[in-house]
Nucleic acid binder design. Structure first.
Length: 723
RNA sequence: GCCACUUUAGCUCAGCGGUAGAGCGACGCUUUCGUAAAGCGUAGGUCCAGGGUUCAAAUCCCUGAAGUGGCUCCA
């Protein structure tokens, strides 16, 4: 028998005469550890607690809680993977003929994709039954038993069960562990029985699992969703059942409470309560109506960024909401993103003429969507590549012209640049606009302000020489940094999106892409923030740098973006006269520090839970007279505030002051000024600061006005006014 | 777009075949008050829309719209 030496995390070694299991190792360390052990990590790989360790290895025992008292993320994943099996068995017991597909753990829980028989779909009404069944399985505390068969036997077993999804999983597993890939390893399939193989429920599974069902203390079925097999929308539709699990009921309860709290800061809920925006069915899905209060927030953000733009040498431009279809065929937006744009707007006369010719719908679409031969050859010549798809090229007399609701601002800005001749001395030219664009998002994607069909980008396009790219990109990045730090959004990461190495989803010369990607990478390096490079994440015309901001609940939002573009200047034939007196093609940089005003405000609402810094607050101060006796004084206070440019109101209703405070607190107003006879006599105001449970004390009205003016002017993120 | 669920007063929701309900808000009156809701009263509804079943539909069935959670997508 070979002896095995186990090295523990603290460096101690334990000799064993026979290959021990993780449980044996834990038992040798102590009975308490053996009791708590869920699995074992062998040379960094998580394995079943009872699997034999056949060679000398570094071993650590995985318990639910780590030494510092926090939950081990490995243990949680393990437990949730096991919980997914328990849920799958429970569902299988309740719904006959349910075919299991795939059930992985997630950072917050787990799901199982299941194909239900058509006559028996799952509904949320089944949750109670499923949970009861899961509890029964947990109470039985059955062992998770692993067994392996060779590929042929395993496949035979699965095929006899008639579940094509599991057969497919097995085929993938065999392919992934094929001898050619891993040398000597023979491909085998592993199964886990929840209890005894042959007697209890079992599933094809790589594992590992917790030792027994009883170790999963608390499971809850959370929601239903649909998914596609292999994520392919043309493939089978599956039902995805989400759940979560913890070792104890208390942790589950805490998690559910946390979820509730998260939904309480939902921008749609807060937006309605604070009357920040409205979406009206009659106006249309995904179209935001900014109400007066939300209008203040947006206006302040726009003023803020406009000030920065002046400092950085930008020019403000204004362009209309539509443009000729031809423009977007030139830019490439129309062919590339046809599916996610509103349909073209076609002139009445053109429609009537086609209709008179008996032109059918398909023919009409073809003649709208086609590209003229002249445009195709021009662009292909300029970009030295076949960028116009030949089957869409029609002779000019067959084309129908139309307009597009603009999906991007760049073509309009390009035309502004092209309207004048430029010398290299003029560059960079920086054109900025709060430009509203429209995109046809799928209805199921729409979500409050964060996913909409019409939105305003804080857009700008910079036209510069190749030598200026690096510096201009850095300028853009510093702008994004100013924006994020002013708003106290300091938890973000930076993603450099590079072209997909093997896909054809990019246009242009690879050498230019290399240049652009290098410029982005270098600029990201100078940021002093961690960044990741992600191939395949580029725009079709160039690489980009995205700022992904993490909000208070840990969700990530892609907000600011900077993109380098060598393609559009070529497609539009842009040029400037260089020092050599010859024309050169400029490089374009697209950038939007907020991204979209709608989405940014939505994220901002959730970030602050509606409690905006004073400079952004729709209502900055509310004056609360104690009774009608001080209404007059309250109004004089209001006048003083308004004269100082402070957004303020008076609550002169006949509520008691407690009621007025409650109402003002619910509207998340930064400062309340409570005024009674005592204050009126001395020209004072009694201050109450948002988030503070008690009176901050009295102060002179003039002092308050000066302090809040300073706080607003500095765009401070905190409430700084004190008596 | 796909799957599940939801849609009743301005808001949050109850009612689930037999007269349309509550709390908050709004409005009015009383109270004139010192730090997170004073008291009383009044108004407010095409029960999402259209069709069907029924003596009778907010309630059951069908179709559609919108919303929510996911899937897929996001220049």
């Amino acid at each position: 028998m070979p002896s095995v030496t186990i090295t523990l995390p603290d460096g101690k070694t334990l000799p064993f005469d026979n290959p021990p299991s993780g449980f044996d190792v834990a038992s040798k360390i102590g009975p308490r550890l053996a009791k708590d052990a869920l699995a074992v990590k062998v040379d960094g790989e998580v394995r079943d607690l009872h699997a034999p360790i056949t060679h000398d290895a570094k071993v650590s025992i995985i318990t639910y809680k780590m030494r510092d008292g926090t939950v081990d993320p490995d243990a949680l994943l393990l437990l949730r993977h096991s919980a997914a099996h328990i849920m799958a068995e429970a569902i299988g017991n309740i719904v006959k003929g349910a075919q299991l597909v795939y059930g992985p753990p997630l950072p917050t829980g787990f799901y199982y994709d299941i194909k239900f028989p058509d006559d028996r779909p799952l509904s949320t009404n089944d949750f109670a039954n499923i949970e009861a069944e899961m509890k029964r399985i947990v109470a039985e505390d059955r062992k998770f038993t692993r067994y392996e068969c060779d590929a042929a036997a395993g496949m035979g077993k699965l095929k006899s069960e008639g579940n094509k999804y599991k057969v497919d999983n097995a085929e993938r597993a065999i392919a992934a562990s094929s001898p050619s890939a891993l040398g000597t390893q023979t491909s085998a399939l592993s199964f886990y029985a929840t209890g005894e193989p042959g007697k209890n429920w079992e599933d094809l599974c790589r594992g590992p699992h917790v030792p027994s069902t009883g170790r999963v203390g608390a499971i809850k079925v959370l929601s239903l969703a649909s998914s596609f097999w292999h994520g392919d929308e043309n493939s089978d539709r599956l039902t995805r059942v989400y759940g979560t699990a913890f070792a104890t009921q208390q942790e589950l309860d805490e998690y559910l409470k946390q979820r509730e709290e998260a939904s309480a800061r939902d921008h749609r809920v807060i937006g309605a309560k604070l009357k920040l925006f409205h979406i009206d069915e009659a106006v249309g899905q995904g179209l935001i109506l900014w109400t007066p209060a939300g209008g203040v927030v947006r206006d302040q953000l726009q003023k803020f960024i406009s000030e920065e733009l002046v400092k950085q040498g930008y020019h403000q431009v204004f362009t209309p909401h539509i443009g000729r279809l031809e423009l977007y065929k030139t830019s490439g937006h129309f062919p590339y993103y046809k599916e996610s744009q509103f349909a073209p707007i076609i002139e009445r006369d053109a429609l009537a003429e086609l209709s008179a010719q008996g032109c059918g719908c398909a023919e009409m679409m073809h003649r709208v969507e086609g590209v003229s031969a002249r445009l195709a050859s021009t662009i292909n010549e300029r970009t030295k590549k076949q960028t116009i798809t030949p089957d869409r090229v029609l002779s000019d007399d067959k084309l129908i012209e139309g307009f597009m609701l603009k999906p991007m601002n760049c073509p309009h800005h390009i035309k502004i640049f092209a309207s004048q001749q430029h010398s290299y001395r003029d560059l960079p030219v920086r054109l900025a606009e709060f430009g509203t664009v429209y995109r046809w998002e799928q209805s199921g994607e729409l979500n409050g302000m964060t996913r909409v069909r019409g939105f305003t980008q804080d857009d700008a396009h910079l036209f510069c020489t190749p030598e200026q790219v690096a510096q201009e990109v850095q300028g853009c990045l510093s702008l994004v940094k100013i924006v994020l730090s002013t708003l106290n959004m300091n938890n973000y990461r930076v993603r450099v999106g590079l072209r997909d190495p093997d896909a054809k989803k990019f246009t242009g010369d690879p050498a230019q892409w290399d240049l652009a990607e290098a410029a982005c990478r270098n600029a990201a390096k100078t940021l002093g923030v961690q960044f990741s490079e992600e191939p395949g994440e580029a725009a079709f015309y160039g690489p980009k740098i995205d700022f992904v901001v993490k909000d208070v609940i840990g969700r990530e939002w892609q907000l600011g973006t900077v993109q380098v573009d060598y393609q559009l200047p070529l497609r539009f034939g842009l040029s400037y006269i260089g020092a050599d007196n010859k024309p050169h093609t400029p490089v374009m940089i697209h950038r939007a520090p907020f991204g979209s005003m709608e989405r940014f405000c939505g994220v901002l609402i959730e970030h602050f839970a509606g409690a905006f810094p004073t400079w952004l607050s729709p209502e900055q101060v509310r004056v609360l007279p104690i009774s009608e006796k001080t209404n007059e004084y309250a109004h004089s206070v209001l006048t003083a505030l308004k004269n100082a440019g402070v957004r303020a109101t008076v609550d002169d209703g006949n509520d008691r002051v407690q009621g007025k405070i409650k109402a003002a607190a619910e509207m998340k107003i930064p400062y309340m000024l409570i005024v009674g006879p005592r204050d009126a006599e001395q020209g004072n105001v009694s201050l109450r600061v948002r988030g503070v449970e008690k009176d901050a004390g009295a102060m002179k009205l003039e002092t308050f006005v000066e302090s809040i003016k300073r706080e607003i002017a500095e765009r401070r993120a905190d409430l700084s006014v004190k008596p």
